[in-house]
Amino acid sequence: MLHTFVAYVEDLPGVLTRVASLFRRLNINIHSLTVGRSERPGLSRLTLVCEASGEAGHRIRASLFKLENVVDVDDIAQAPAVTRELALIKVAATPRNRAQIFDLVEVFRARIVDLTSESLMIEMTGVESKIEGLIEVLREDEGRILEICRSGKMTMRRGHHVSSVLRAMGAGDAEEARETQENAVES
């Protein structure tokens, strides 16, 4: 199954090697790993997604905690959480066939962030399935996609909401929340 770990690690040279090395040692492939500053000074926050057996979650979390530079580890498992990924996609587009892309971008609630006479760049944030949906549609036109850059998943646990609040928070968000949970259940 897919595991998602969120960890706070010390912002020091070599810390990422230690985290990555743990997964290498366990012969587990890292699907995605995003790291950046956090709300805690001196600490980076990372989201790491990997494929491992169901029982492996406990041991991975315990082993991550054994790393001296790891301050906190959360195994998101199936807890209610918001997961997002950022993608930048550069597609070949001339003034003649741009309009079609603009429509697509509109449907997927993405944005155009760069435009030249030969290409344009799409920025999109969302759950993995949504980003993959856009990429799939773009691929229908062979040779159109020039470059793809994806951030990997970023995950944050939801606060303690009752379900009525979740519903009230808006269709879009609720839809994504459902997707997140479905993804978690699938994997």
Partner: peptide
């Protein structure tokens, strides 16, 4: 004492 050894 080592939680990583449990159920290993």
């Amino acid at each position: 004492i080592d939680p990583a050894e449990i159920n290993k």
